[in-house]
């Protein structure tokens, strides 16, 4: 620091300068990682490896530990049972039986929830009625209504659909309604500005604006319905033993997935129980990743309403 350049006020004054950007060379700006690093950074690959390791441990444990196949079958026995069930016993038919019930229940349930919420948007009393109903009925496990449903609708799909409806309507209505209520005042005013009213206002402004919440409701509704259905089929399985009702009558293949699990259990065919559970997981993952993930990707993610 030379003395001359310090001004009287003590500031160190130095010459101005301007750089020509890009004229000079730059160092290593970007370098590819090594092959191994790149491969181990692939998420699905790592998870898949872990899956395989777990399967190997399972197989070894069941074999070396000499566990009774009745208690805990090996992976290979489960795999064989699964293939056998798929090819010979028509396991897919059972899956379809379950899905059919589930889908019709889901569709009807969502429509009823939609009607309830639309009525609630219109007036304060409607809104109060809906919140009171959902607050009361949402904490009630749908399966607990099954005994009453069997009394009202008999031992059959009617009773199951009724319980499914109950498991879907309340979470969907609850989340949709609270989603509507938290749509920002600005967006509401924008909607009014376009002259949108009534149903057009609901479907063109409120529904998309509340979509993250609606999607959550749909997901919870699905999760409850899937669990309720499996449980209901298990209960019917129990019924079959003492009343030999119509659902899984001997010889026919009209039962669902839950019933198959129950029946295999009763007949001490544990590998087939595992095969059934495997199908349950598969259906669950397909719905989550194939359906909900896809919707989410195409809507709330794309619109930036929810971070990745």
């Amino acid at each position: 620091m030379s003395d001359q350049s310090v001004t009287s006020s003590g500031v160190y004054v130095r010459p101005e300068f301007e750089n020509e950007i890009g004229a000079a060379g730059t160092g290593e700006v970007e370098r590819r990682l090594s092959m191994f690093e790149r491969i181990s950074n692939i998420d699905p690959l790592r998870k898949f490896t872990i899956l395989i390791i777990m399967v190997v441990i399972w197989e070894l444990y069941a074999r070396i530990g000499e566990i009774n196949e009745l208690m805990f079958p090996t992976f290979s026995a489960t795999g064989t049972a699964l293939i056998d069930a798929l090819v010979n016993a028509g396991l897919l038919v059972n899956v379809w039986n379950s899905l059919k019930l589930l889908l019709s229940g889901y569709a009807i349930g969502i429509s009823i929830a939609a009607v309830l919420v639309i009525l609630a948007v219109g007036s304060r009393i409607g809104s109060d009625l809906l919140t009171t109903l959902t607050a009361m009925l949402n904490p009630l496990p749908a399966i607990a209504l099954l005994p009453m449903a069997m009394l009202w609708f008999g031992l059959g799909p009617g009773a199951i659909i009724f319980t499914l409806l109950h498991s879907i309507i309340w979470p969907v209505a609850l989340n949709t309604h609270s989603g509507f209520q938290s749509v920002s005042e600005t967006l509401r005013m924008v909607g009014g500005n376009y002259g949108l009213k009534g149903l057009r206002y609901i479907f063109k402004i409120l529904v998309p604006a509340a979509f993250p919440s609606i999607l959550t409701g749909l997901r919870i509704g699905w999760a409850y319905a899937w669990r309720t259905l499996i449980a209901a089929e298990l209960v019917f399985g129990g019924q079959v033993v003492d009343t030999s009702g119509q659902l899984g009558a001997e010889g026919s293949n009209s039962g669902g997935l839950g019933w198959i699990i129950f029946e295999s259990q009763m007949e001490n065919q544990t590998p087939y129980v595992f095969a059934g559970l495997f199908m349950v997981i598969l259906v669950g993952i397909t719905v989550e990743n194939g359906f909900f993930r896809n919707i989410e990707e195409k809507t709330v993610r794309k619109w930036g309403m929810q971070k990745a």
Binding site: M189, V190, A209
Partner: peptide, 20 residues
């Protein structure tokens, strides 16, 4: 008497565009 497209409002808030 009611909102309509003959009087369009530009708000201060950034969230006035439809995000979807």
């Amino acid at each position: 008497t009611e909102p309509g497209p003959d009087r369009v409002m530009v708000f201060q808030e950034f969230d006035q565009l439809l995000p979807w």
